[in-house]
Design a protein around this nucleic acid. Sequence first.
DNA 1: CATGGAAAATACCACTCTGA
DNA 2: TCAGAGTGGTATTTTCCATG
Length: 287
Amino acid sequence: MLDGGNSRKWTRRSVTTNTQGRNKSGQCSDPRKLRQEILDVTVSTSATLNLNKIETSQYQQIQHFDIRQLIAQNKDLASLVTVIVFDTETTGFSRERDHIVEIALQDLQGGENSTFQTLVNPECRVLNSHIHGITTNMVNRPDVPRMEDLIPILLKYVKSRQKPGGCVLFVAHNARTFDVPFLCNAFRRCGVDIPSDWLFKDTLPMGREAMKSEGSKPSSRSISLQALREHLGIPLDGSAHRAMSDVKVLAAVFQRLTFMLKLPLASLVEDAFTASEIGTPKKKSSR
DNA sequence: CATGGAAAATACCACTCTGA
DNA sequence: TCAGAGTGGTATTTTCCATG
């Protein structure tokens, strides 16, 4: 039924034909290439002008993009990239109103001090203790670091794991829309920039891709961290929804996914995103 | 509960085929 | 030649799902 009646808004679109395929009128099918083209134009036009805020952030994106490419093209990649799996527990879903209450990291290289875990004082009540078991009393104490206390320690820890001239690839499940935005906001509130050599990789699309390549039905394709863990036969070490046990699960899941999808470190780095690419909300139609 | 990306559903066009 | 059904392709909108 293509009638549609009067209740639905129809939008007239330009006439299309089936002879030109997707890339008609010179459109670029690869979003990254397209972005690069757009940015190239921005940079060349802004060369004679003062850079305003938007142009500056776009210019930063180019620099990050270049870092990713440079690193990915480097033959001795393992000596440049530090892979750190991380997970955060928060007081809720809102990145504006809610705060981090626990953070855990694991450097996949292993060795001494390869893990880092701490509770974080959110300086507000914890109303979702039933999720992770972290209560207001546990974190609202003078001996639990606030985010502004923790950031310098965190930066120092990551720096200690980082290789000279290299970058850090942070891996988290649903990183793009959860952990990284929370981290960005926490840094922003403290007036600290996330280092430009920090790259992020989300295991959620990797899980989706892996399940698809296995041919499992979309309806039975749950790609939550715990579903992936069960699917891959990874034992649960500790309780779910505590940062360090989730990190341990994710570390195993991540390594299995990279193996299943045959993803070399170079492509992981190239597909990674930066903190500057987070927090620019896309316009969404009302539902 | 907030948010955004992916997948699915829907809309609509050009074109082909078929029967009268 | 014409009308109508069917098909293929693309654009847009809606729904689902992941995170604490």
